[in-house]
């Protein structure tokens, strides 16, 4: 993940005009470093799950019911295997399940964020640049959607989409529907941010200079305005990613997300909570901790990025 962002130095008429480089150096504090390492670590672990996982939790052949409910780090009396985070009731290794589960969670979260980004950025750009009726219609739709909790929207979209998909394909389509539901429920925030930034940028004279030579609005939006929105878009995308991870977990926890045959972190938590009161805490605790760490580290990075891109907070400028 690159943290060098090439942004123009803000105009400061009373300072020497040219700084050696427009790059912003993120001064990373210890918390940010930890968050960065954790986020990258979790993402890499999810990416290379098949290589890292000691067992394949989805291969019934390798499962042994006798290994069920093993506490962490205790060698099994029957198969002599040791499980880092213990096993669940079917003898599945919790550690491996978490690796595979993060994979599903992150795939859904990344794809959903990409979708909200695509919808939100296009809507925001058009809304901000066109103004008038177009702007009013787009923003009122966004406002209306914002009045409902995102999870409600996602549930609604999920329900409708599942109704449209034939029963036989529901299981394979579930991930796609989930991505669409989460992605669609989050676009208004993106649209609002992008619209605001577009309103500022479109008044700048470089846009007028492009209009003078007859550059089309679409081209102005894509080649002139969009690059200048990279900063704010990057920030909301990062924070949106953390939100999408949590939203996916919530949906899966409620049982409307991915099917139990390909469990995500949310599904694992749902399964785990059934055993909490009978003393098998590890089945719930480890997936839950992973989810918390993942969401927290990505969110911290988003906050730090936002502060770094905010010239007012960057240094003691006048």
């Amino acid at each position: 993940m690159a943290v060098d962002i090439n942004l123009p130095a803000p105009p400061s008429p009373d300072r020497p005009a040219s700084t050696p480089s427009g790059r912003i150096r993120l001064k990373l504090g210890i918390v940010t470093w930890l968050a960065l390492l954790l986020a990258i670590g979790l993402m890499l672990a999810a990416l290379f799950a098949p290589l890292l996982a000691p067992y394949d939790p989805f291969d019934p052949a390798t499962l042994d019911l006798l290994d069920g409910m093993m506490p962490p780090m205790q060698p099994s009396a029957f198969t002599e295997k040791t499980f880092l985070f213990g096993t669940d009731n079917q003898g599945r290794d919790v550690f491996s399940s978490i690796l595979y589960g993060s994979r599903v969670s992150l795939t859904v979260a990344f794809a959903a964020t990409f979708l909200s980004l695509a919808i939100g950025v296009s809507a925001g750009l058009v809304s901000g640049y066109a103004g008038g009726v177009t702007d009013a219609v787009i923003m009122r739709v966004a406002d209306a959607q914002l009045t409902f909790p995102t999870i409600l929207i996602a549930l609604l979209v999920f329900g409708i989409a599942q109704g449209l998909v034939p029963a036989a394909e529901q299981e394979s389509a579930a991930v796609w529907i989930l991505i669409f539901a989460i992605g669609f429920s989050n676009w208004p925030q993106f649209a609002r941010t992008v619209r605001g930034a577009t309103l500022v940028e479109k008044r700048r004279d470089y846009v007028a200079a492009a209009r003078l030579i007859g550059v089309s609005p679409a081209r102005i939006l894509v080649t002139h305005i969009l690059p200048n929105l990279a900063g704010p878009v990057l920030v909301i995308a990062t924070i949106g990613l953390a939100l999408a991870v949590i939203e996916e977990a919530t949906l899966s926890y409620l049982g409307v997300g991915v099917p139990p045959t390909r469990p995500s972190l949310g599904t694992l938590i749902r399964i785990g909570q059934q055993f909490l009161f009978s003393g098998e805490w590890w089945i719930l605790a480890f997936p839950a901790a992973t989810l918390v760490l993942l969401a927290l580290s990505v969110n911290l990075l988003g906050d730090r990025l936002r502060d770094a891109l905010n010239p007012r907070l960057r240094d003691g400028r006048r």
Partner: peptide, 24 residues
């Protein structure tokens, strides 16, 4: 739709910080 007649009219703006796209 082309505001200027084939580039025959050009403009120099007041604020040299806003008239050049910082990303180009």
């Amino acid at each position: 739709n082309a505001p200027a007649v084939g580039g025959a009219v050009q403009m120099v703006f007041q604020d040299p910080y806003a008239s050049l796209n910082p990303r180009w």
